[in-house]
Design a protein around this nucleic acid. Structure first.
Lengths: 216, 216
DNA sequence: CCGTCCGCTCTTGTATACAAATTAGTTGAC
DNA sequence: GTCAACTAATTTGTATACAAGAGCGGACGG
């Protein structure tokens, strides 16, 4: 077992935060975590620092780590940036996609169709991630792929909340269809606009988000 | 002295990388760095992990940390994303700027004018950073500000290289003037386009970048 | 009875010791 | 002479021990 311990700790704690086992505002005690996972404080500290770098927790000097709770406004801002980056990826994808990208995009779109029709939120959630990843990849900008996946990952819990809204899944899927069409047709600006609107939390969707955040 | 040690190490090592004291490809030996700074390996490791999170170095399990050298193509990709984010910030700033933002923007723009006219590259480099920061701030999206400053920071060394190109400083300044005008006039899309073009490494500027990278 | 100050404890930050792995060097065999 | 394998040394990863700052409680004074 190598450095994987830190990775495993990071993933486990991150998972714990996402699933609300560690609620926002909670203090993450190093010794407690160390005992809980059967390791020493050293790898725990390293894992916490990585989570701090991602932005999931905040480490205040000499005062420990606490799970951050981004307020609705901040979450809105993050989606705003995500919308822009996804729009960029879509635009580049429209211009640069290869035959392999086309196949991947259609395949993941097909899987979304299946899970949307089956009304299976969990599967759709997963397929949706792959669909968006396919767009990132088709942009052929490795740095953009990294930025997008990082932000996508960070927004994961809230994206999941959004799916709870009635009919969001079906709406999302039909938006995907237009996006695929635009990308494959090489319509860069259309793809950008559609993706931006697909991601952005505008109008009613913002109140929906706030509402679902509250009832959590 | 508290956790500042890690911060200081991080800044010093980052500075060393930026100033090419630690050349790309160099192995960063933990013990050597620890001795050099008169501390133990623990804070050095933490500083290295932070640098790894930023993307300045790469840590391969059991094989140490090496300074990464982003190839020209990757640097181009990073500027491509930066251009998009700055464009977004400019667009938001055009719509949301307050009187205070207006004053800040004009002030930093004025300082750029001074240093450009004095042909002082170092001062211009610094004033230029403040100018762009003023735009980020005027967007009134704290998350966007963070993303922009992080990427801006990472691109710092290459931005500095670009200033070496003949007349780049004057050109840059005149582009700033148009950008300020667009933002203060509330022309969101114009501001976006101008900023995108201002940042993007397109056409000749890419070959200039490659050339300056090579002669470093 | 309330407020402030001093001290104790608990937690974080740093150092060092120990374990495991990788790499390089040397030796032996083909 | 070259290649491969084994061993030793260097270096990373983890644990533990030690130091120092922050929070909390009790005691003393007003």
């Amino acid at each position: 077992m190598a450095e994987n311990i830190v990775q495993k700790l990071r993933d486990d704690i991150e998972n714990g935060i996402v699933t609300n086992q560690f609620a926002p505002g909670d203090r993450l005690d190093e010794m407690q975590l160390a005992k809980q996972f059967g390791v020493s404080r050293t790898p725990v500290r390293e894992a916490l620092m990585q989570l701090s770098a991602i932005g999931l927790i905040e480490i205040r000097p000499r005062r420990g780590a606490v799970v951050v709770e981004p307020g609705p406004h901040r979450i809105y801002e993050m989606f705003e940036v995500m919308a822009e980056l996804e729009g960029m990826a879509g635009s580049l994808a429209a211009r640069r996609h290869t035959d392999a990208d086309r196949a991947d995009l259609l395949a993941s779109h097909g899987r979304c169709e299946q899970s949307a029709k089956a009304d299976d939120a969990d599967t759709y959630y997963y397929d949706n991630e792959l669909f968006h990843l396919a767009i990132y990849t088709a942009s052929h900008s490795s740095f953009l792929v990294e930025q997008c996946t990082a932000l996508h990952r960070r927004l994961r819990p809230y994206r999941r909340l959004q799916l709870r809204v009635r009919n969001r899944m079906k709406t999302s899927y039909s938006e995907h269809a237009e996006i695929v069409e635009a990308i494959l047709a090489g319509e860069a600006e259309l793809a950008r606009t559609l993706l931006r609107q697909h991601i952005a939390v505008q109008g009613d969707r913002f109140s929906d988000l706030v509402a679902t955040l509250a009832q959590r």
